[in-house]
């Protein structure tokens, strides 16, 4: 069974969101990383880019697959995880911690459609 922390929100497209004040941190779930296999590259947006809910903000690649990453929230990209450039395996080894991808400064409230851990657990199998 994959790890689904109870303090996060989830998108059906397998991104997680941690909201602290008006900043949201985003990554992909443990389930998503295990489906992908060894992550070899993460393509992330430029800092400052404006994202609407559902916009593609990047992609994550294993050897033979590429998956687009969808923003679960609306806002401006505040920071990207610099470690992923040279250590994309962090997405596999610590998807909710050091494997985070982007931080967004929220320009709207977090969409109510996002799932809680229980709801996501029903999707991720």
């Amino acid at each position: 069974m994959s790890n689904i922390p109870s303090d996060l929100k989830y998108a059906k497209s397998h991104e997680w969101v941690r909201v602290e004040g008006d900043v949201a941190t985003i990554g992909i779930t443990d389930f998503a990383q295990s489906e992908l296999g060894d992550v070899v590259y993460v393509d992330l947006p430029a800092v400052g880019k404006t994202l609407a809910v559902g916009d593609i903000f990047g992609s994550v690649e294993s050897v033979k697959t590429v998956s687009d990453l969808y923003s679960p929230v609306a806002g401006n990209v505040l920071e990207i995880n610099p470690e992923l450039t040279n250590a994309s395996e962090l997405v596999n080894t610590d998807p909710y911690g050091d494997g985070w991808m982007i931080k967004i400064s929220l320009t709207a409230s977090v969409p109510s459609e996002l799932l809680d851990a229980e709801g996501y657990g029903a999707v991720a199998h």
Binding site: Y41, E61, V63, K64, T65, V66
Partner: peptide, 12 residues
């Protein structure tokens, strides 16, 4: 670097 190629990334 196969993910650049057509059989994986198709229209992208």
């Amino acid at each position: 670097l196969r993910t650049r190629e057509q059989d994986i990334r198709r229209e992208k």
